[in-house]
Every structure is written in structure tokens, then in C-alpha cells.
């Protein structure tokens, strides 16, 4: 039970990753596959951010520990905990995963835009965005290109 509590976030991340991958692999519709890919990519954000969270921490925007806000935060925590894990009297969550995920989100939207643009061109060229129908069109074209026996 305690394992569930300490690893709940990771289990959710796995479920979301599987959902995204399943859409990408099972769907034949190019747009739906891009949506699945976006879901898959976004699950990595949850993954990284989850292990950057620090119990009782706050956002990594440096506070004045003597100020009202800093005092209010410190009051909620065990002083020994703050002394061990805090920085200048305030406990912060880890900023590094945040930076990495900012990058990953931006990469995700770039991929989405290019992928959808290609899908639109596929629709313009083949008249469909379903993989099966695209394959069928390609096969017919290939047969027509064959020289008569």
C-alpha cells in the first residue's frame, strides 16, 4: 500500500504513456496518430516533474526567508527538515526538471505542427488521411505504372 502512495505518480505516467503509444500504433488515421503522439510526449513531462517535487517545497523563485511569505512557509514544516533540505531557510522544489520539460513541451508542439502539416499535404495528395486508403491508392498507382506483360 505504501508503495502505491510513494509511486502513484509513476503508475499514472505509465498508464498515460501506454495510452499514447496504443493510439499511435493502433490507429490508422494520421491526425489521431498525431494526437496519440502528443499524449505520449506529454506523459514524459509528468514523469520528469514528478521526481522533481520535494515534499513541502515551493516554486523555485527565491524568497526572503525572513519575509512574511517565507515565514508562513517555514511554519508549516518541521524546522529540522527545513534545516536539512532547505536553502537559506526555504524548501524549494527542484528547478532542473522544470527547465528540461519546458524544452520538451516546445519540442512537442514543433513536432505536432510539422506532423499535422504533412498530414494535410497527404490529404491533398491522396484524398484521405487513413493509412489503409493511402496504401490502396499507392498500390493501384504502382500497378498502373507496371508495363503490360
Amino acid at each position: 500500500m505504501s508503495w502505491i502512495a510513494t509511486h502513484f505518480n509513476y503508475v499514472v505516467v505509465v498508464i498515460l504513456m501506454m495510452a499514447g503509444l496504443f493510439i499511435v500504433f493502433s490507429s490508422g488515421n494520421l491526425i489521431k496518430r498525431m494526437i496519440g503522439l502528443a499524449l505520449f510526449q506529454s506523459s514524459t513531462a509528468l514523469f520528469y516533474i514528478s521526481f522533481g517535487k520535494v515534499s513541502g517545497g515551493t516554486a523555485a523563485i527565491t524568497l526572503d526567508a525572513q519575509g512574511a511569505e517565507g515565514q508562513a512557509l517555514a511554519a508549516q514544516l518541521d524546522p529540522a527538515y527545513v534545516a536539512q533540505f532547505g536553502v537559506e531557510g526555504v524548501v524549494y522544489s527542484n528547478p532542473l526538471p522544470h527547465v528540461l520539460i519546458l524544452t520538451a513541451i516546445v519540442v512537442g508542439v514543433a513536432t505536432l505542427a510539422v506532423g499535422l502539416a504533412i498530414a494535410v499535404r497527404v490529404r491533398e495528395s491522396y484524398g484521405t488521411v487513413e493509412s489503409d486508403e493511402i496504401d490502396a491508392v499507392s498500390r493501384v498507382a504502382a500497378e498502373q505504372a507496371e508495363p503490360a506483360p
Binding site: 499511435v24 494520421l30 505520449f40 510526449q41 519540442v107 510539422v114 506532423g115 499535404r121 495528395s125
Partner: peptide
């Protein structure tokens, strides 16, 4: 076009 789309899907899964 479909080849590039396929490349994008596979490449992105790989990178992820």
C-alpha cells in the same frame, strides 16, 4: 508524404 509522416512518428517515438 506518407514516408515522411511515418519517419516523423517513428523518429518522435525514438526521441521520446
Amino acid at each position: 508524404l506518407p514516408a515522411a509522416f511515418n519517419y516523423l512518428i517513428m523518429g518522435t517515438i525514438g526521441a521520446t
